[in-house]
């Protein structure tokens, strides 16, 4: 399952998932920053959990549910996190943004009412080099309140 659609593909089993997504499937939202699991730019969701697509091989995706940033908006409507990122200007160059949003999706699925500290910890695997952390954390906070689940559950 890729972004809500069942797909069958042929791929080299040892192809990195980041390359499979970007080169073969044309899904260029996930970015390769470091290629070593240290920057979070290639974050995707596998069975609803954030994972690094630069450290996974194509064979590992068999039978899994994968969500990339391209699958986050539903029926033309932005996800509240995407709206918040736009509204708060949490995007500068945009390179880290897909990973940031997917990490936030994972965080909010596990903890729908995170504190500011918990947001920072939840996003700690994603580096932003435009120095935008303040606005990114603000955006996640706003999305949390928009999604109507303010405060600790």
């Amino acid at each position: 399952m890729l972004n809500g659609k069942e797909i069958v593909i042929n791929a080299e089993p040892d192809q990195r998932v980041i390359d499979l997504l970007r080169e073969d499937l044309g899904l260029t939202g996930a970015k390769e920053g470091c290629g070593a699991g240290e920057c979070g730019a290639c974050t995707i969701l596998v069975d609803n959990e954030s994972r690094l697509s630069c450290l996974m091989l194509a064979a590992q995706l068999e039978g899994k549910t994968i969500t990339t940033i391209e699958g986050i908006a539903k029926e033309g409507e932005f996800h509240p996190l995407q709206e918040a990122f736009i509204e708060y200007g949490a995007v500068q160059c945009g390179f880290c943004t897909p990973g940031m949003i997917l990490s936030a999706v994972d965080l909010l699925a596990k903890n729908p009412g995170p504190t500011r500290e918990e947001i920072k910890e939840g996003m700690s695997g994603n580096l932003c080099r435009c120095t935008g952390y303040q606005k990114i954390v603000d955006s996640v906070e706003m999305a949390v309140s928009k999604m109507g689940k303010k405060g600790r559950q």
Binding site: G40, S50, R51, L52, M56, S103, D106, G122, S124, G125
Partner: peptide
């Protein structure tokens, strides 16, 4: 250890 996605893997 690592970061949330590293801990997920």
């Amino acid at each position: 250890l690592g970061s949330p996605p590293v801990r997920n893997m």
